[in-house]
């Protein structure tokens, strides 16, 4: 053991622990009792807290993307392909990844901090002794809520991003809304939509899992809470790119272009 550098050992330790935590989630997620009320509350909290942020970034993303690409497309004489290009870029990659990153910052950190402070103030112990399984009540509900809400947030971001892109097109190129969105929906195939949506479930899972893992295992003291929130964001963001890469790889095998 002594020959393995400490950094590598910590990395491996943590990977193992998160995997165990994820396995515990799958073991407890499908067994009664289910905490439906808390799940609904978490869905509401997660959706409500991030929807404004997600919509704003989605809108700006659509505007900026279109403004940046348009001149090049004009040079190539392909400006009429703008709706196809932008919609594929947003729906397949930029929408999900940007939204997930925003959510990793917003949701991941708040879950990490909330569970972390519950841990260090013994609220989790108090739940345990009062007959409620805190893993089910706190962790399972939050991870499910992330899994369910992230796709919805991504759809909202995609829609508003496409709308932003349309605004640029219509002011610069005088395309009607109907024509623009006809082109968008003509170009989007199931092969784009399904993998893009499926991967957002995994993004939600990654964000919820890491936030809960960091909070639930945070160490004593207020410092521990800050560390839990911070490292939840860093690790979740990193994990998102790994998940994205794997998702694209798998999708590529199934839907060869």
């Amino acid at each position: 053991m002594a020959t393995i550098p400490k950094a590598l050992r910590d990395y491996l330790d943590q990977t193992g622990e998160i995997s165990l935590f994820a396995m515990r989630f799958f073991r407890e997620a499908f067994h009664r009792p289910f905490e439906f009320k808390e799940l609904l509350r978490q869905c509401y909290v997660i959706g409500y807290n991030s929807v404004f942020l997600v919509i704003t970034t989605g809108f700006i993303m659509g505007l900026v993307l279109t403004l940046q690409i348009r001149p090049t497309m004009i040079d190539f004489g392909a400006v009429s392909y703008m709706p196809q290009l932008v919609s594929i870029a947003i729906v397949r990659e930029i929408g999900p990844v940007v939204t997930a990153l925003i959510c990793a910052g917003k949701i991941g950190s708040s879950i990490g901090a909330e569970l972390g402070s519950m841990k260090v103030t013994e609220q989790i112990d108090a739940m345990e002794v009062s007959g409620t399984n805190p893993f089910k009540y706190l962790v399972v509900t939050r991870i499910w809520a992330c899994i369910l809400m992230l796709p919805l947030l991504v759809i909202a971001a995609d829609a508003i991003g496409l709308f932003g892109s349309f605004l640029v097109e219509t002011t610069k190129g005088e395309v009607s809304m109907r024509l623009y969105f006809n082109r968008v929906f003509d170009s989007l195939l199931f092969g784009d939509l399904i993998p893009a949506t499926v991967k957002t479930f995994f993004f939600g899972f990654a964000i919820g899992l890491v936030g809960c893992y960091k909070g639930y295992n945070s160490t004593k003291g207020t410092e521990g809470v800050g560390h839990a929130a911070n490292s939840a964001v860093v690790l979740a963001s990193l994990l998102l790119f790994v998940v994205d890469f794997l998702a694209v790889l798998v999708a590529d095998i199934f839907y060869e272009i």
Partner: peptide, 20 residues
């Protein structure tokens, strides 16, 4: 264990009320 825990009250060091 849950049954026994209900018979044993536990007052935690920092009160441990649920913040939310």
């Amino acid at each position: 264990l849950d049954e026994i825990r209900a018979d044993v009250g536990f007052l935690f060091q920092g009160s441990a009320l649920y913040d939310s």
